[in-house]
């Protein structure tokens, strides 16, 4: 790889490091997934169950010939279950060399955060979800909870 390419869209805010997040809704809250890790966003296709997988694994999908594990993000975060509907999406992420899909209630927008926007020692309601969070950011219209993807698949969900 040659030297990293320069920004093409965000030159104006070059002073402070920024990160870009795609915001998703889960049980009424807004969560952020770092765009760097996002491969694509898709509507829910047919999901084939995987016997013996961890409880939060919904199953696998065939993504243009690649088999991708899909997790029930609500269940992983200890949130109440919900039926999939027209707004439900799967966010395909790659983290630590693993590709997996996260089911979310909906996908909202893309936001840029400066480092100073992010509070890394947050107090977040819902103890179960806390291990998967890396911080919060305060947006104009509320709190954005930032997901720590490295922890989402811990306990070996990808190990099959």
């Amino acid at each position: 790889m040659s030297e990293p390419a320069r920004e093409v869209q965000d030159e104006a805010r070059a002073e402070e490091p920024t990160s870009r997040w795609v915001t998703v809704r889960l049980a009424g809250e807004t969560y952020g997934i770092e765009v760097l890790n996002v491969q694509e966003v898709l509507r829910v296709p047919e999901i084939a169950p995987v016997p013996g997988a961890p409880h939060y694994v919904l199953g696998i999908i065939n993504l243009r010939g690649h088999v991708v594990t899909v997790i029930d993000t609500r269940r992983r975060f200890g949130l109440p279950p919900a039926e999939h509907d027209e707004q439900t999406r799967i966010v395909i992420v790659e983290v630590d060399g693993q590709v997996f899909g996260m089911v979310v209630d909906s996908v909202a927008e893309v936001v840029d955060l400066r480092r100073s926007d992010i509070d890394t020692a947050p107090a977040v309601d819902g103890e179960e979800a806390a291990p998967y969070l890396q911080g919060v950011a305060h947006l104009d219209d509320g709190l954005l909870i930032l997901i720590d993807l490295h922890r989402v698949l811990e306990d070996g969900a990808g190990g099959f």
């Binding site: 093409v8 869209q9 996002v38 491969q39």
Partner: peptide
């Protein structure tokens, strides 16, 4: 083929 959020850098 796919929909994805734009990365900050291309």
């Amino acid at each position: 083929e796919a929909v994805l959020p734009a990365p900050t850098r291309l």
